[in-house]
Structure formats: C-alpha cells, structure tokens
Amino acid sequence: MNAQFLYGGAGILLFAIGLWSLLVHESLVRKLIAINIAGGGVFHVFIAIAYRGDSAPPDPVPHALVLTGIVVAVSATALALALNRRLEQLDDDDTRDASASPPDTQPMARSPETSLDQPANGHSVALADRRPAEPPAASCAQPAPGLAPRSGGRALTEQGSPAASNTGSDGSQGQGAHDV
C-alpha cells in the first residue's frame, strides 16, 4: 500500500509537472516533452493501480493498456516532431524572404528555446529540393499567431548559420533533438 501510493503519487506529480510545463512554455518542442512527461505520469498511476500485493500477480489489464499507451505516445510524438520540423522549414523560408526587406521587426531572442530548435542543418538539401513548390504552403502557414515569435527567433540564429546556404557538408550532429 505504501509503495503503491508512493509510485502512484510520483506519477501524479509527474503529470502535474508536465501539465504545468505544457501550459506555460511556448516552444512546441518543450510542449511535446511536457506532454510526454505527463503521459509518463499517467502510466505510473496505471502501473500502481495494477499492483495487488506481493501474493497475487498484478492486474494484467492496466499493464496491457500502458503498453498500448506507450506505443501510441511514441508514434504521436514522432508525427508531432515531423510536423514541427516542417513548420520550422516553412518559417525559415519566410524569414529568408523577409530578410530581403529591411529587418525592422525582430522580436527578442529567446535563447533557451532557440537553442533547442537550432540544428536544422541536416535538412538543407531536402529544403533545396522542394524550394520551388513552397510559396503557397508558406503563405498558408503564415497567419498562425503562435509562429510569429518563433520565426523572429530563428532569424537571429540563422544569419550566422550555414543552413542558409545549401552547401550542406555541415555536420548533422546535434540534430538528434529533432528526430525521434
């Protein structure tokens, strides 16, 4: 009972931390990590409830539900990361177009987030392949309000980065934050 409550209570705390982080932070990657932490907390609670004392075997149904949940969480996270990277590519194109005009509006840089998002270098070649088809899609994505500060932050990081030129031999280490 005590160990069970400790484990389940830790799950509830994880859920609360994840929920708070999801609501407070703005970066999509941080939101994604927060959702995963909250989900992990829920799995903890399920496992704790399945425990039936040392004498009896644990309830297999919550265990199976947790296995199912892990797989769904992993695949949803993978899809969300891919969508996030696609959004960043569109943002990059926007800022590249905008940098032709004088850089009048540059929102403040948000260093922790941007450093999380930074390494987009490995995708430069893929970007070049698709470049001609981009403008309509980019204009679709533009009005989304949540994207405006991000593209500003990226403009700061991008000016010194080799991602803007498509020469592409630049290292792709550090890209791991993007892939699943």
């Binding site: 199912t68 969508l83 893929a126 698709r130 290292g171 280490q173 890209q175």
Partner: peptide, 24 residues
C-alpha cells in the same frame, strides 16, 4: 488498431516530405 495507429503516424511522417540527409 494500435498497429494501425503506428502505421497512420508513419504515413503522416512520410507525407511531410523526403527524409533529411543522414549523419556523418
């Protein structure tokens, strides 16, 4: 259905474009 979810997620990822180049 869970395997179908996995499949759907992968199809979503594939629909977003070709794979980025790999690591060194």
């Amino acid at each position: 259905l869970e395997l179908a979810v996995l499949l759907a997620a992968l199809l979503g990822i594939w629909s977003l474009g070709p794979a980025p180049t790999g690591y060194q």
